[in-house]
Nucleic acid binder design. Structure first.
Lengths: 143, 143
DNA sequence: GAAATAATATGATAAAAATCATATTTAGGA
DNA sequence: TCCTAAATATGATTTTTATCATATTATTTC
């Protein structure tokens, strides 16, 4: 459904949302272990997330990654769009160039509703929302 | 969302549903062109679909691929399961081993409904249903 | 301002998915 | 029975994705 990269990115951003802030930064290697992602890989993903303003960072000693208030308010779909690209959600389900609402492909026809709903939900929930669910014991991050 | 292979498989199966039957078989290369998929690739995919009883075939002269009545009644999700595997739909959205309904991951939490709906729809519609929509002008297969 | 630390940029390698190629088997027709 | 046509099995190649490694740059602290 989502690529490994996207899953890793979501996990990293969630971890940062739960454990970091502007005065409490976390190094790439210290994020990698708890979310079970290769350190070098998560480092590369984090760089991309920093470039696109989804995560904040400071170099040098006492530096690291963290989530600012603005970062926390970004929507879940923003992370997915940066890593997997928008077409993943908006593109035709059969990759037909000429597929659209007026002339939908057969899959579009039957899946359009649930897909729209999916996009809506990802658009409505911020990273902070997901983190809050974890804090409240309504969602979990095991292993 | 779906892999190229899955998209190709759906397109091939739809094409066969619309243009073939037990007395009108179609060769791999004659399927490849209209659905815009590499001939050798679609041939390989068709073999897998035949092995799993989603498509029928006859070798030799006058042979080819076709959809039997049973083939046409298979559900869309069956094709996707064969090509992409079931985990694509049932697996945790963050690939967490211990994620489940009782202890859902944050993504599971917000996407579960639309995902369930998606699976339901794919389970309810047969290949024939999709083909019918095309015949009735309710769905299209451009390019 | 020098030393140490941590992100950044860049590129190399490995694994998986997609694509291509071909020898083998089966079925039909002369 | 022999030739041809078509699927099948198998494997090679290419492309993409995932993973690993390292030299460079920025920042803090002494």
């Amino acid at each position: 459904m989502f690529s490994n990269s996207s899953k890793y990115a979501i996990k990293a951003v969630l971890y940062l949302s739960l454990h970091s802030n502007s005065t409490r930064k976390i190094m790439a290697k210290d994020i990698a272990q708890p979310i079970n992602v290769p350190p070098a890989y998560i480092a590369k993903l984090l760089q991309e997330l920093v470039r696109t303003d989804l995560v904040s960072s400071v170099r040098g000693p006492k530096g690291g990654f963290f989530m600012s208030k603005e970062n926390n308010n970004q929507k879940v779909i923003d992370v997915l769009n940066v890593i997997d690209g928008e077409k993943k959600f908006t593109g035709c389900l059969l990759s037909l160039e000429a597929c659209n609402e007026e002339k939908p492909c057969p899959l579009h026809n039957i899946l359009s509703t649930s897909r729209q709903h999916m996009i809506k939900v990802l658009n409505e929930h911020s990273i902070a929302d997901l983190a809050l669910a974890v804090k409240n014991g309504k969602a979990y991050l095991p292993l």
